[in-house]
Design a protein around this nucleic acid. Sequence first.
DNA 1: TATGAATGAGGCTTCATTCAT
DNA 2: GATGAATGAAGCCTCATTCAT
Lengths: 211, 211, 211, 211
Amino acid sequence: MGTNKKATGVRRQEMASAALHLISERGLNGLSVARIARHVGLVPSAIYRHFKSKDEVLDAVYDLIEGKMISNLREAWSSSPETVDRLHLLLRLNIRMIIEFPAIPRLAFGEGIYGTHPERRTRMYRLIRNYLSQIQRAVALAQRRSELRSDVPASVIAASFWGLIPPAALLWSASEGSYDISTLVEREWTLFEEIATLHRHRHGTKAVGNN
Amino acid sequence: MGTNKKATGVRRQEMASAALHLISERGLNGLSVARIARHVGLVPSAIYRHFKSKDEVLDAVYDLIEGKMISNLREAWSSSPETVDRLHLLLRLNIRMIIEFPAIPRLAFGEGIYGTHPERRTRMYRLIRNYLSQIQRAVALAQRRSELRSDVPASVIAASFWGLIPPAALLWSASEGSYDISTLVEREWTLFEEIATLHRHRHGTKAVGNN
Amino acid sequence: MGTNKKATGVRRQEMASAALHLISERGLNGLSVARIARHVGLVPSAIYRHFKSKDEVLDAVYDLIEGKMISNLREAWSSSPETVDRLHLLLRLNIRMIIEFPAIPRLAFGEGIYGTHPERRTRMYRLIRNYLSQIQRAVALAQRRSELRSDVPASVIAASFWGLIPPAALLWSASEGSYDISTLVEREWTLFEEIATLHRHRHGTKAVGNN
Amino acid sequence: MGTNKKATGVRRQEMASAALHLISERGLNGLSVARIARHVGLVPSAIYRHFKSKDEVLDAVYDLIEGKMISNLREAWSSSPETVDRLHLLLRLNIRMIIEFPAIPRLAFGEGIYGTHPERRTRMYRLIRNYLSQIQRAVALAQRRSELRSDVPASVIAASFWGLIPPAALLWSASEGSYDISTLVEREWTLFEEIATLHRHRHGTKAVGNN
DNA sequence: TATGAATGAGGCTTCATTCAT
DNA sequence: GATGAATGAAGCCTCATTCAT
């Protein structure tokens, strides 16, 4: 069959990607070494040339996800000078990503990392926190520029923005794609934008906490 | 072995509950018939006296979850005549539930129902939709009573409220409980309350969609 | 449910009979204590009031079979003074029995008694040998009366007669009843009768052995 | 463990053969994946490298049996130009086969194919019918050559010949090998030969049916 | 006499992983 | 770098059987 031999770097990419697709299509339960192998046109044992274990493949999947999230951030940040526009694009990019890889929110939610892999949970947590930090920084900047209201801590606004994503993912996932997630998200975005920019129209709102 | 024999009704409860706890602690993957049995102090095959299959146990877990969600709804609805207070309590109850059973958001997110059990996904979706409907109905009522702003469809406000839950669940889950979820949620709630009652202070906001 | 309590004698009969029917319909593999119980309207554990074990039930099934075979013999023997007629009827009765209870040839062939239950095999062997003996005695008598040829040992003729049954049973069983077993058997019987009475027409056939 | 690795073709053979032996010794009920594995010196799960399921192993057993039966037929047919000699050898070969593999008549009789595997029964039936057809063809040829009597349909003679096998198998099986099956069969064969060649000596026998 | 809960042995199967080639 | 055979742990399930009620 003229087996294609490829460098390990390439193979690892292929395999991690295959794994991500597989989890997206069949869930983590449906992810087996055999199926990953089949997806890249190899035999199960061949996986072990490139990864020490199935777990290591999953780690690579986490890398992949992290990469995608960061790349979304970069793309959004470089798209416009306006914080609000950046956030809007970031939201859309993330939704698009979730639609393409439903595995991502599921993994973020902890599928398969209970008990056995606390380090994975930690990693995901760090990733989310970083994400929130970056958003928060952007929000703070916008607050200083008076693009966003200042009577609410940046952290709360950031959390509020980021909080638009999980429910959308959930509905989309549970509805098997039949739910009109984009429209929903746009509506929620409008509400978010309204409240986040509220300071421009109004004063005297009581503070919302510190953090 | 001095085994305690119990009526099948009791055992089913125990087993479903054990299963829910196990999923919360170890994920769906970590849920095995053997472990359920051990949790209730029996031998694995004893499960089959009370359930036809492991799948049926999972169905009972779904029943349990559905029951808890409905009971939260009832408790909240009967707690006060004010819609806003009701929603606030409902939010707290759900957060409390998720803290106790992290399995719930994960199952809602479709852990383990890929491919094999579409009916489970459908069921969860229906459950969420019903939840949203009930909230929406309450919101609509409050809008007629001018407790909540009327220039935004009830469905959007309902979704917005319900949307407070998943991100909180995610953060709490990923942080392994170290994140101060209650405080976060309270802050988000304040924002939500502010925007949902905005009509009392202001006019002229552009409409946010139809549904 | 007003459980019907019955004397053990009656129950044993019911259960053995249920077992024979079950084996006939579903094979020995399909015979479970639970199904026997269900057939007699009881709960599995109730079987053990009347039998020490499932094996004992099977023994009772063997009793049942033995009884049927002996009763066939009696009926045939008392039907006519002519040996040939008796044999013909005996053949028909046995075929009828096999059609009603396909379990019988299968058990005779050793289904389920390999390794584990040598005594059952022995018993079946004794039963067959007795059967053959009785037939042989009848044949010998007929030979003395010149109803059957005498240049062939009675044992061979008896075996030849008895030998009509298993192939018919096999074809009927394999064909799931679609094979016209009665017609086949009647034709074979005609051949048998021809050869068994050959001595009346012809001489000089070489002897066929001793036993 | 110094395990000998072998090609899958070899293993399949070994396993099917082990299964056939096991059924011969312990009945279909005694056939377990674990025992097959032990017989070939492997671990149970190793079976699944070579067969998709236990059922598939059984299919291979059926193949084996079919192969043996066909090979008997060939050997007999090529042994002599005389139909009578061919049949005689075929009888001996089949008896020898049954002595070696008592599983065969039992499987032919439908052990274990009740309910669950109708296709297996069908297959066995087809096999037997084919066997009968081949014999019948040979008989018909012999009839045209006047080697066998012509006043009885070839089908009846064929059935009569084939009918020598099952009773012998049954007696041998029930007697656990103590019965002198070969002698019995030879005597029955003599009778069969006598009646099948009767036409050479005699005329005017009434016809025995049509088919 | 009958029930229903519980046990324990055993059966089939999947899957990550190792290893010789 | 890739294959294919083999392993061992684990999982789900069935069933005869026991025992308290």
